[in-house]
């Protein structure tokens, strides 16, 4: 019994911790050694892992598919772009996360009353509303685009992004194991039953929604430094939200492995099609999404599980 428990602790706690740290070291170390081109690839990979894992804390666990995570990313980037000259970066990155989390907390209460597919299209509509409202604000301020001078170099950004990816991965894994995560899963399986069995569903959904926006806000702040250029339409693009959802479905969002697999798939595909037209890449992505929804709704991670059994 005791060894059973130890083995379980090993499998659930120690192993994921070690694997995540090893993955992070590999991504950062490998990126550093392989030269500038691969540093950018590693940065992109880390960015998507961080975004999809965070999304999965809310959407993977509760089953409420959010198509609005671009807003969290965008708010972080916006804060960085507008305040870069006045505040140090180490203040702005966490502040970007806090801003995104706060925004999510505020909208969560009305939005999370809506269930199912209406929730999905609502988050999407809300994201577009924020985008166009901010665009209007920027036009009124006379700032159609902003430039950032003197941003840190790629290797520094890579280190931060890898740290964010590792943090998001561990957060996703440990939230999934926690009592909080068990409650979220119960909501996904049957919200009415969960509520009747004592799960405080509204509080949990709101908290998970806010929590899942924090790291994307920080990712957005770092990416604003990376592109050194800020434009509302680009940063709040629905493509970001859609890519997150597509990758989560292809990778599987039932555990913390899925998002890593999904991000690897995405970055691998885009590397494979480097030089080909971006349309071809998107067509393949769309076809993959359709195929996975039809034939493997639990994603690559689900396929791995099935093979093992």
């Amino acid at each position: 019994m005791a060894t059973d428990r130890n083995r379980q602790a090993m499998r659930r706690i120690l192993l994921p911790l070690l694997l995540t740290l090893a993955g992070a070291a590999l991504l950062y170390g490998g990126g550093l050694r392989a030269g500038p081109y691969w540093q950018v690839v590693a940065l992109t990979l880390a960015m998507w892992i961080a975004l999809i894992q965070s999304w999965s804390i809310f959407s993977g666990l509760t089953g409420y598919v959010s198509l609005g995570h671009a807003v969290a990313y965008g708010l972080g980037a916006y804060l960085m772009a507008t305040q870069f000259r006045d505040y140090p970066v180490w203040v702005l990155i966490p502040a970007g996360g806090a801003l995104a989390g706060l925004f999510a907390l505020i909208v969560a209460i009305p939005v999370l009353r809506i269930r199912g597919p209406y929730f999905v299209i609502l988050t999407f509509g809300l994201a577009e509303l924020v985008k166009f409202a901010l665009l209007r604000l920027e036009t009124a301020l006379g700032a159609s685009s902003r430039l950032l001078f003197g941003a840190p170099g790629t290797t520094t950004l890579l280190a931060w992004m890898v740290a964010l990816a590792a943090a998001a991965t561990l957060l996703r894994h440990f939230v999934g194991l926690s009592r909080f995560g068990r409650g979220l899963i119960a909501i996904r399986e049957d919200e009415t039953a969960a509520e009747t069995l004592g799960v405080p569903v509204t509080r949990f959904k709101v908290l998970a929604f806010a929590l899942s926006a924090v790291i994307p806000g920080m990712v957005g702040a770092v990416m604003a430094l990376r592109s050194t250029y800020f434009e509302v339409l680009q940063v709040f693009s629905p493509t970001i939200s859609f890519t997150i959802v597509t990758m989560a479905i292809i990778g599987g969002s039932g555990d913390a492995r899925g998002p890593v697999l999904g991000a690897l798939f995405l970055v691998g595909l885009s590397e494979l099609l480097r030089g080909a037209s971006p349309q071809l890449y998107l067509i393949l992505l769309g076809l993959c999404l359709i195929a996975f929804v039809l034939f493997a709704p639990n994603g690559l991670s689900g396929l791995l599980d099935r093979r093992r059994k």
């Binding site: 009592r179 068990r182 409650g183 899963i185 119960a186 996904r188 399986e189 049957d190 009415t192 039953a193 969960a194 009747t196 069995l197 004592g198 799960v199 405080p200």
Partner: peptide, 24 residues
Amino acid sequence: FQIVRPFAGLTVRDNVETAMLFGQ
């Protein structure tokens, strides 16, 4: 519930454990 509402994707043990984690 008259029309049963199990957490269909979870095991029997996890169904019961979830209720225990939140109801107690």
